[in-house]
């Protein structure tokens, strides 16, 4: 198992190096901008992955919680003159508080009922933002959010914000890695695999699910705060369900229930969408069928498929040396949970 970890660290190291080097090799600023935006979506997708991938509850209000975080920063800085970082510190907690109460209500429901309930919660968030003119600026949106700054260091160029976002992405990945390997993270996975079994093991279902939901909305709020500081313009559309659908696509392409899946998915799909930009409004004609083919033929995503392949290889090697036999499908599942 030591070897595995070393390989993993090399993998993370290469990714981090590539990410740090990216702005210096990018041919124009726009590419850096797109990449930073992909990182923000990746952070949000990691939050969704925590509840949908690890805990098995598909929350369709995720973009709504991201919007709550974004509007926390936007409204506090623009309307109330609160410094950016103070507002940013509040983005995650406020989304998490709303998420906590939404979680208590919605997690009493299971499977589809939960998904549809959260879809409605997301829509309520959107409508409240869009119709609450006096408080949220309504359909006009929030304009002129100040750039984040630390002392004399102002993050107003694209490259500087890119590194800021990258720092938060690395932080989120690190926290997430610690979390999913902890006993708490394992109890999330236990719930995904079987509600009844998890309960029989002494896991408090409701408390654990609400914890996963609250953490996931916290991350959504955090990414929303970053989004506000980076794009510096907010519209109510951020809360719409199609943004949640985008996030689901990111998670699924990268590999649902894997640590790096959402990150790879967000980056890969963002660039695919960029390359389809020449199709303008028609890009969904390609994107829609692509999503369908993906769930049909590639349901475990990039990381998941790789994990299963690795596990099968290890199992075959194990069989050859006549040590204990491991069923390929079973260890595939484990690899997916651990990756």
């Amino acid at each position: 198992m030591r070897v595995d970890y070393r390989m993993e660290y090399v993998f993370y190291g290469i990714l981090l190096l590539a990410a740090v080097a990216f702005p210096f090799f990018a041919t124009n600023e726009y590419q850096v901008y797109v990449m930073a935006l992909a990182f923000i979506w990746a952070i949000s997708a990691m939050g969704l992955n925590l509840i949908a991938g690890y805990t098995g509850q598909l929350n369709l209000a995720h973009a709504g919680f991201m919007a709550i975080g974004a509007y926390t920063v936007g409204l506090l800085t623009v309307d109330y003159g609160v410094p950016f970082w103070l507002a940013f510190l509040l983005a995650g907690p406020i989304a998490a508080v709303v998420g906590f109460f939404a979680g208590i209500l919605s997690l009493r429901l299971k499977t589809h009922f939960f998904s549809i309930f959260t879809l409605c919660v997301g829509y309520i968030i959107y409508l409240l933002i869009e119709k609450g003119d006096s408080f949220t600026h309504g359909p006009v949106g929030v304009i002129g959010i100040p750039a984040p700054s630390i002392g004399p260091l102002v993050f107003d160029t694209t490259t500087s914000v890119y590194f800021l976002v990258l720092a938060f992405l690395v932080l989120t990945i690190w926290v997430m890695r610690r979390l999913v390997r902890s006993i708490v993270g394992r109890s999330f996975v236990a719930i995904r695999n079987s509600d009844d079994l998890a309960e029989a093991l002494g896991i408090n279902l409701m408390r654990t699910k609400v914890l996963a939901f609250t953490l996931s909305t916290f991350i959504a709020g955090l990414s929303g705060g970053l989004f506000a500081g980076f794009v510096r313009f907010l519209g109510p559309d951020l809360a719409r369900e199609y943004h949640t659908f985008d996030l689901i696509a990111f998670v699924l392409v990268g590999g649902i229930g894997t640590l790096m899946g959402p990150v790879l998915g967000a980056v890969a799909l963002t660039w695919v969408t960029q390359s389809l930009q020449f199709l303008e409004n028609y890009r969904m004609i390609v994107f829609g069928p692509m999503l369908i083919l993906l769930v049909m033929f590639f349901p475990h995503g990039i990381i998941g498929t790789f994990g299963i392949w690795m596990a099968r290889r290890r199992a075959n090697a194990g069989k050859r040396s006549n040590t204990q036999a491991v069923l390929p499908s079973r260890s595939g599942e484990e690899a997916r949970a651990n990756a």
């Binding site: 949908a52 598909l58 499977t111 589809h112 998904s115 659908f245 689901i248 696509a249 699924l252 649902i256 409004n281 028609y282 890009r283 969904m284 004609i285 994107f287 829609g288 069928p289 692509m290 999503l291 369908i292 769930v295 049909m296 349901p299």
Partner: peptide
């Protein structure tokens, strides 16, 4: 779409349906 996916987890059906939704909307808009 739905017949080939009948044995997959419910999440996959939902995502395939979303893919179909996006596709039909884009075609109509085109």
């Amino acid at each position: 779409i739905f017949h080939p996916l009948r044995n997959s987890p419910a999440l996959h059906d939902m995502i395939a349906a979303i893919g179909l939704l996006l596709f039909l909307e884009a075609v109509v808009q085109a």
